[in-house]
Amino acid sequence: MKKFITLLFLLIFTGCAINEPLRNRTLNDEKIAIIDTKTNKSIPYSTFIDKIQKHNIILLGEYHEIPNHMAMEVRIFKSLNELQNLDVVFEMLSSDKQAKINEAKAKQILPNELKNAIDWDEKWDYRNYGELVESVFYSNSNLIAGNLSKDEINTIFNGALPIYGKFSTTDEIKKALKTFVATSHKLENDEKNSALLDKFIQVQLYKDRRMADKLVHSKTKSLLIAGQIHASKTVGVYNHILDFDLKKSVVSVMLGDEKSFDLLNAQDAIKAFCDYYIVFK
């Protein structure tokens, strides 16, 4: 488990390079490698789409600050949507906004009105996400709000009952999340901050459970757009899906960058982390 935790942090915290936000970003296939972690070999994009579309649930993990990732998500969504309509679950939208999304769809809101109509949270840069959100919204697929509301987060933080699961709340996962949360919130992982970190962990677990709930109860193929830690097989939504005990197949895809290319040599660890890893060289 220690090796997996180390890899998790190397993968998540090495992707800090920020590109200029752009729509209609062109991706150069010669500078993209799609790695099948079972074999540690690169596969063509068409083969990749053929493989992942066979699964009921597709987890797609990103770095939130890299527009190339959103551009790749647009491309993957459009490729999958050509084959079948999807439920696309967004970490960036809280579940209480679903009614606004449905209303905007019914009113056929124009693209320049969509951001306000669905009450998009400004903490997510819409210059990065706009093309992806609009690609889903104006397709025959469904835009699904998959995260907790601010009121729900406050309730959990102020003392909601802990969440339980056979696969998703093990001591190993909680330990990994505690290290991740401490790092991301710039807190020392010590006795002084232990109670505070435990609250953050519960919020993280509830977020993953909510997204898993949306995915497993979809009546069609479902796609998750979320940060890497949520989409990982080691500590994220994947384990909550297992706790629902549904007979749906799940595949995990991670988006990385040139800094994480060498990490693919840790084959056993990355195979546990995800099924496919896309590197922008």
Rank of each mutant, 00 (worst) to 15 (best):
I109Q: 03
Y129A: 06
W120P: 04
G256F: 01
S149R: 05
E65V: 12
K281I: 05
N140H: 09
K100F: 02
V253K: 06
K100N: 00
K41Y: 10
N116V: 11
R127L: 12
K219Q: 10
Q228R: 15
L161I: 08
M254D: 02
N189R: 00
K3E: 10
P162W: 10
L187F: 06
I153D: 05
T234Y: 10
L22R: 15
E152I: 04
I118G: 07
Q202M: 07
S141G: 01
A195S: 13
M211T: 12
K192M: 10
F9N: 04
N116S: 14
L60F: 15
K166C: 07
V89S: 11
Q228N: 15
A272N: 10
K105L: 07
L215F: 08
D198V: 02
I43V: 14
A176H: 00
S135E: 11
D121C: 08
F261I: 09
T37R: 04
S141E: 03
L196F: 12
I52A: 03
D268R: 13
H230N: 13
G165I: 09
R210V: 11
H64G: 00
D36K: 12
D213G: 12
R75L: 14
K115S: 07
K186N: 11
Y277G: 04
E30F: 14
T155A: 10
L59K: 14
V133Y: 05
S95Q: 09
L8F: 06
L114P: 03
V250H: 07
M70H: 14
I109N: 01
I58E: 01
E20Q: 12
V181F: 00
L7T: 03
S168K: 13
N81R: 00
F4V: 11
N158P: 04
E82G: 04
A272V: 05
G15Y: 03
K115G: 06
